[in-house]
Design a protein around this nucleic acid. Structure first.
Length: 274
DNA sequence: AGATTCGCCTGAGAGC
DNA sequence: TGCTCTCAGGCGAATC
């Protein structure tokens, strides 16, 4: 599933192909996404020029020449594809934006957990974004912030890390990975972790996500063209613990364990993580 | 307020 | 081969 590094890779792949393009025609084939695609969606986008392609958490934000924004989220299975005009529509192709570059930006999403919403220029904030915590790869994110926000909290640190209000865009996979690199067990109560360990955790989050973004970029180069074409899943970096239950820890060889934390699969090394 | 559970979906994989 | 069943997972909403 697209995690933050994959979304960033898609953003980088799309940016040069979208900025400056006019959206000439919009087709909505399926409005039943996570939230219904609004009436007037096509009409509001038609004729607009894309000024920038930004990312916040796992949301892609296409800023338009009139100040409106198009918010896109890939959910579990979403993909954004730049297609040649003649490419036939396939199953699960829900949105099609025909661009002045003569390509089509296609939103494809089998599970329809994805999102396509308009954020009008008249609104200063958007409900989906206004409570988001700092970007994990920005200077605004650090261990001190984690420590302070965690005081009095009884949730498992893994759930704490996946709470977008604490830090933006850390999903299930990278939460497990970061905790492994920080040497912290996923089920540990967030409020009982000392400051020094949160510093280490913040650095782990930064390192793991940063490396994955770089990896995406590298893979992107290998493919020569448009990261957005490719399956986000294939960018997956070599993961240390995620989905490796029973396999040996890369550090110590101990068998990796799977644990349910807040209904989600978590993976950890019982020896390296305390 | 914070913690937990639910619900939305389909494809993949397991089991028969 | 082909069917049925289970499960995964982002994340806001609903519930406790």
């Amino acid at each position: 599933m697209p995690e933050l590094p994959e979304v960033e890779t898609v953003r980088r792949g799309l940016e040069p192909h979208l900025v400056g393009c006019t959206i000439e025609e919009v087709r909505v084939h399926e409005r039943r996404l996570r939230w219904p695609v609004e009436r007037g969606f096509a009409q509001k986008l038609r004729g607009r020029i894309i000024r920038s392609v930004e990312r916040r958490a796992k949301y892609l934000l296409l800023r338009l020449d009139n100040g409106d924004r198009l918010i896109l989220h890939l959910g579990m299975s979403g993909r954004l594809l730049l297609l040649e005009p003649a490419t036939p529509r396939r199953k699960h192709d829900h949105l099609d934006l025909r661009l002045s570059s003569h390509r089509r930006l296609c939103f494809h999403d089998p599970r329809r957990f994805g999102t396509a919403l308009l954020w009008p220029a008249s609104r200063r904030t958007h409900a989906l974004l206004k409570n988001l915590g700092p970007e994990p790869l920005s200077d605004a994110f650090d261990g001190n912030g984690l420590f302070e926000k965690s005081r009095g909290r009884t949730v498992a640190v893994k759930n704490f890390l996946m709470d977008g209000r604490i830090v933006a865009g850390v999903g299930n996979i990278y939460a497990s990975e970061s905790l492994f690199h920080a040497g912290i067990r996923p089920g540990t109560t967030a409020g009982r972790i000392p400051r020094a360990r949160y510093r280490r955790l913040a650095e782990a989050v930064r390192a793991v996500l940063g490396a994955a973004v770089e990896q995406g970029g590298t893979t992107l180069k290998d493919h020569g063209f448009v990261g957005a074409h490719t399956d986000p899943g294939r960018f997956q970096v070599r993961l240390a613990v995620y989905d490796r239950a029973g396999a040996p820890c890369v550090n110590c060889g101990t068998s990796i364990r799977r644990l349910l934390v807040g209904q989600r699969s978590s993976f950890y090394c019982p020896r390296c993580q305390r």
